[in-house]
Amino acid sequence: MKRLKKFGAIICAIAMIVSSITYYPTSNVSAAKTATSLPKKVIGLVANSKSGSDTIENAIMFAWAGADDPANEAGYDPTVTATVIYIYKDGKQVTKIGNATKGGVVGGLSAGSYTAQAANVNSMGEGPLSETVSFTVTGATLNYTYPVNCIGPKTPAGLSYITGNPEVPADNPAQKDNKLGVAWAPSSEASIPSADSSVVGYNLYLFDAKTGTPYRRVYVDGITKSNVILESVSAGEYLAYLSAVDAEGRESALAATSFGQSSKVTVKGQVIDNAQSFDKPNQPTLPDGISILTEGIKYGFTIAWSGEADLTGQRLNLFVDGVCIKVGINGNVASYYENRLAAGTYEVEVRSQYTSNNVESFGLKKTVSI
């Protein structure tokens, strides 16, 4: 219990410390004055891919002079409620980020040359476009088509890796084989520019960093969530991006890891053939600390997970050699004992499933001998 609490404190600290590197003042929607005309032009738009010696791959950071800053004489406009960014490649629009976070690192972009313009928004509509900025994205060619309209919530901020992070203890669950953990600044935190009360959850996207192919998309439910540890991740090198999702299913742009952290993360362990297409429905995550235990157990095995894991709206299903032998294991007790198997060797798999729509997660697999 103490270790789990310490883990939570570490993750919160990582997310907030890393995110503070890229935070800038932003417009306060609740304090915006009534507009009688279109907003002023965005001043000072810049697009950065380097901070000192740090280069972010497949991502870019946008910043501009705040419309809420009186010192920005040419662009000060208290009617502004949001800023949109248009990104172009080869003369064609790649995406429109409808609720951009100033200082946010936008990820999921393929390597190449781009241009961008920004516009302020108030109750009357979009203002004039800013001057055009050009930038180059380095990294892999991602086999992924960026959403044309990211008109959902604000882009999250402070994304950082737990796995492979030297500040995270070696005995942390995220450092174990075939696990990948990330942390971020939750959208519920009112004091940060990426705060957005419309958020109901997040989508975590993983790409194979060597080939640029999609590996997995996982939905993380809840605006206050600030970290997740994925189970049964194949050994390899990955790029991770995070989007915020509202109740209507609209997504923000994809956030990349903040400056000061590597763009890539390495997962150790076994190679597992369990990649998916991003077109599949959002999937639940397996409960924290889940494991399949056989040591010292006669006539079967035990599935166990953290007593603090939240399985609200989910159930666990048990498969043996691809056949479902138990449906609806609930979280009232943080373990389940199975002793109905004859002597032999089996592939055991546990999946989490939403009770509302029956969508299942990827499973945790283990070969066991009875």
Rank of each mutant, 00 (worst) to 15 (best):
A195F: 11
S187F: 00
N178G: 07
V182E: 07
V182I: 14
S187D: 00
P193D: 06
K176F: 10
S191K: 09
P193Y: 06
P169Y: 13
D196R: 02
Q175G: 02
A170F: 09
P169E: 14
A190S: 10
A170K: 15
A174C: 11
D196G: 00
W184Y: 12
I192Y: 02
G181Y: 12
P193M: 09
A185R: 14
W184E: 13
L180W: 04
E189S: 11
S188K: 05
A185L: 10
S187M: 03
S194D: 07
P193H: 10
D177R: 11
V168I: 15
A195K: 07
N172S: 12
P193F: 07
P173Y: 02
V168D: 12
K176Y: 12
W184L: 07
L180R: 11
G181A: 14
N172A: 14
K179W: 04
A170M: 10
E189F: 14
A170W: 04
A195W: 12
A190E: 08
S194K: 03
E189L: 14
L180G: 03
D171M: 09
Q175S: 04
N178W: 08
P169A: 12
N178C: 09
P193G: 02
N178I: 08
D177K: 14
P186D: 08
D196V: 01
Q175L: 09
D171W: 05
A190M: 08
S191P: 00
P173N: 04
A185D: 15
N172K: 03
K179Q: 15
D196E: 03
W184H: 06
S194P: 00
N172V: 01
L180C: 02
S194H: 05
V168S: 13
N178T: 06
S188W: 07
S194W: 01
A195H: 13
S188H: 07
A183T: 14
P169C: 13
S194M: 08
A170N: 03
S187C: 13
G181W: 11
A195C: 10
L180S: 02
G181N: 11
W184R: 07
A183G: 15
D171C: 01
A195S: 13
P169G: 08
S191M: 07
N178P: 05
D196W: 00
K176V: 00
L180E: 03
P173K: 02
E167G: 13
G181M: 09
P193A: 08
K176G: 08
E167M: 15
A185Y: 05
A183M: 04
P186M: 04
A190W: 04
N178F: 11
G181R: 08
S187Y: 02
